[in-house]
Simulated assay, not measured.
Amino acid sequence: MSSKDEKNLAQVLEKISSMDEPRRSAMRRVHDVVLAAAPTLKPRIWYGMPAYAKSASTPALITLRNDERMNLALTEKAPFRAAGGVDGELMPAAWYFDSVDAATEQRIAEIVRSVVG
């Protein structure tokens, strides 16, 4: 891991650690799931949010937001596919959550893997 990657990771972990509980624990779990699902992604801060990109110099593909609700979101740089079915041409881009259980972890891992291919 390069020193820039280490610095970026430290900034992401610092951002998460500054959150109040129980959000801090939930976001840390999501961070761990993202990195386990796609170990090649590089954590970084993107517009003030924890985010994950293919390299330290490329745009973020995934962000974690901690506003009124927590969410995992794909940026416009992520490869999008229409949902199909009843959702037609709509493209899923954000998933809100209040807590993280095993099923949520599994779904987040699926989403992350779909982004990195």
Rank of each mutant, 00 (worst) to 15 (best):
M1S: 15
S3K: 13
S3Q: 13
K4R: 15
K4L: 10
E6Q: 11
K7V: 06
N8G: 05
N8F: 08
L9H: 11
L9T: 15
A10C: 04
V12R: 03
L13W: 04
K15A: 11
I16W: 02
S17C: 04
M19G: 08
M19L: 15
D20N: 14
E21W: 05
P22N: 12
P22C: 12
R23M: 07
R24V: 11
R24I: 10
R24E: 09
S25A: 13
S25F: 01
M27E: 10
R28K: 15
V30D: 03
H31N: 08
D32V: 01
L35N: 05
L35M: 10
A36R: 12
A37F: 00
A37D: 01
A37Q: 03
A38Y: 00
P39F: 00
T40R: 14
T40D: 12
L41C: 07
K42M: 10
P43G: 02
R44A: 06
I45Q: 08
W46T: 08
W46D: 09
W46Y: 12
G48P: 09
M49E: 12
M49Y: 09
P50R: 00
Y52L: 03
A53Y: 03
A53M: 05
S55M: 05
A56E: 08
A56Q: 07
S57T: 15
P59N: 10
L61V: 06
L61T: 12
L61S: 08
L61F: 03
I62K: 05
L64A: 02
R65V: 08
N66A: 13
D67P: 10
D67K: 14
D67E: 12
E68I: 05
R69G: 08
R69D: 06
T75E: 01
T75M: 00
T75H: 01
A78K: 05
P79W: 00
F80L: 09
F80T: 13
G85V: 02
G85P: 06
V86K: 14
V86D: 07
D87F: 11
D87R: 11
G88K: 14
L90H: 13
M91H: 13
A94Q: 14
W95V: 15
W95F: 14
F97A: 09
F97V: 07
S99K: 15
S99A: 14
A102P: 08
A103L: 04
A103F: 01
A103E: 11
A103M: 03
T104K: 11
Q106C: 06
I108Y: 02
I108A: 06
E110I: 04
I111G: 04
V112T: 12
R113M: 06
S114G: 13
V115W: 02
V115F: 00
V115G: 04
G117H: 12
